[in-house]
Computed example of a mutant assay.
Amino acid sequence: MNAWIGTLIALCALAVSAVTAYVQHRARKREKLAAEVTAYFHRTSEFAKIKLPDGTIRQAGYHLVVWNHGPASAEQVDLEVKDVRGGAVELADSPQDEFPLLRLDKGARYPVPWIPVADAHRGARRFTVHVRWQDGNGTQERILPMRRGQTNV
């Protein structure tokens, strides 16, 4: 009887080890296929002079940077900026057809000059950025609360 119990325990331990190995293998595979897309405000040391499509020259003190810091490429990267009330924030140097980006490779950064079109958004500090992308694991989404402010203290 003790031999049967010992065999049963050994078989259960083998099954648990096999399941654990499979789960770890799947987790490593998912990590290798994942893109980690985020966004942040980058304060420029001097105002960047931006020539808008209509020929107007504007100055940007910040850039909204989209960054893929994951191990895989991100595709169809879409960016949407909203104010605190949920209204869309239109950026002057970001035409309607700029997003989605077809591809954002590992480590790539994509800066967008922070020049809101609406006067109400120019002095505002808080925004929400919605970032969507596709990677080897499917469609991903991240909602980022953002606050514009001094970053080089």
Rank of each mutant, 00 (worst) to 15 (best):
M1V: 03
N2R: 06
W4F: 06
I5R: 11
I9L: 14
L11C: 06
L14Y: 04
L14C: 10
V16C: 07
V16Y: 07
A18S: 11
V19G: 01
T20Y: 06
T20L: 09
Q24E: 09
A27Y: 00
R28E: 10
K29G: 03
K29T: 09
K29R: 10
R30Q: 09
E31N: 04
L33G: 03
E36R: 10
E36D: 10
A39L: 04
R43Y: 00
F47G: 10
F47K: 13
K49I: 08
K51M: 12
G55M: 08
G55D: 05
I57Q: 11
I57D: 06
Q59T: 09
A60V: 09
V66M: 05
N68W: 06
P71H: 07
P71S: 11
E75V: 07
Q76K: 10
Q76Y: 12
V77K: 05
L79M: 09
V84T: 15
V89I: 15
D93Y: 06
S94D: 06
D97F: 14
D97K: 12
P100V: 12
L101R: 09
L102R: 14
R103I: 12
K106N: 08
A108Y: 08
R109H: 03
V112W: 01
P116K: 11
A118Y: 08
A118K: 14
A120Y: 03
H121E: 12
F127P: 08
V131I: 15
V131L: 15
W133V: 03
G136V: 07
G138D: 07
T139A: 14
Q140L: 00
E141A: 14
E141H: 03
R142I: 04
I143S: 01
L144Y: 02
L144G: 04
R148Y: 01
R148C: 13
